[in-house]
Amino acid sequence: MSLYERWCDATREKDKRKYYWTYVEKHGGRDEIQGDLAETIRSHYDRLERIAEDVDRLGYKVAAEILSEAIPQTSKGRSGDLGEILATELVEEEIGLRVPVRRLRYKDGRNMAMRGDDFIGAGYDSKGEKLWLLKGEAKSNKVLGKATVTSARKVLNRDSGRCTPDSLLFVANRLLESNDPDDNALGRSLRDEVGLKSLRADRIDHMLFTVSGNGPHASLKQDLEATGANRDQYVVNIHVEDHQDFIAAMYQEAEDLGDD
């Protein structure tokens, strides 16, 4: 069972190519997924096998110190990163596209926000032939309001709704560095798209993903209603009432690798 199935109750609405999804924590759901989510958080900052090697070589305490150097130490930085992490997991669990590069592993500094698209989903159509992309913007706020939603939509619409070339090229190049031939093939397709810009709008979906303490603000549904229907449009809210305490607790557990 997936992370979201165990953690939240979901309400899903669909109108043609528009999807409005809201999630609320189940009773006991957080306890059910806390350990797995902590591990997922770690995996977005470093490979789990590399962390395990650090533990074997240096012990839990030193390995935890190494991991913490990659993890933001500010509440704002952690909030933003967790939004991207949760969005990535949702795309892979619920939509079936890959988010093939864990971009938080490549930050210039642990407390710095990365430029470019927050997350890019990639894959192929049902026949496995034509490239399909998802451009995503993630927001994590104690109190979500209209200004944040408007700002996120503006980012999704820039570059004519396409993934920004620098973001797409970053993902492509990481995939081309892989030893996996499937990664190489997808990376080649993405790199070609940077130059050719051949994908039609109906094969570049959008997702506006939000995590908030106040639940789905009315502006989310209004935003979705105002968007075009020439691509799949996903608007998502995860309601976590104790938003900031939740983030602090999850990062504390993620940084705690245990003891000797």
Rank of each mutant, 00 (worst) to 15 (best):
L133G: 05
N179A: 13
W21M: 00
A249R: 13
S219K: 06
A249I: 06
I95C: 04
K130T: 12
I71L: 14
D180N: 15
Q233T: 03
S151I: 04
L224F: 02
K61A: 15
E69W: 08
G161D: 07
R12N: 12
E177F: 10
E241H: 10
V101D: 00
G136P: 07
T148Q: 15
Y124M: 10
L257F: 05
N237V: 04
S151Q: 14
Q34L: 09
K26R: 15
G128K: 07
H27Y: 06
K197I: 07
G195Y: 12
L86T: 02
K16V: 12
P165S: 08
P165Q: 04
E177C: 09
I51K: 02
K26N: 02
G258T: 04
T11E: 13
D202V: 00
G215Q: 03
D117L: 04
D180I: 12
K221E: 13
A113W: 15
S160Q: 14
L257R: 02
W132R: 15
G213S: 05
D36Y: 04
G83V: 04
I51L: 10
A254F: 02
W7M: 01
R174H: 15
Q222L: 12
G215R: 05
R200I: 02
N141I: 02
D180M: 11
Y251R: 04
L104R: 10
A52F: 10
G228W: 01
T11R: 13
S43Y: 00
T150S: 12
D125I: 08
R103V: 09
T22C: 04
H27G: 08
D180F: 10
E193K: 08
D259C: 05
K127Q: 14
F119W: 05
Q252R: 13
Q244E: 14
Y106N: 06
K14M: 06
N111R: 09
S178G: 10
A138N: 03
L190P: 06
F170H: 09
K76P: 00
S79W: 02
F209I: 05
S212L: 02
L131D: 02
C163P: 13
A248T: 15
H239D: 07
L58Y: 15
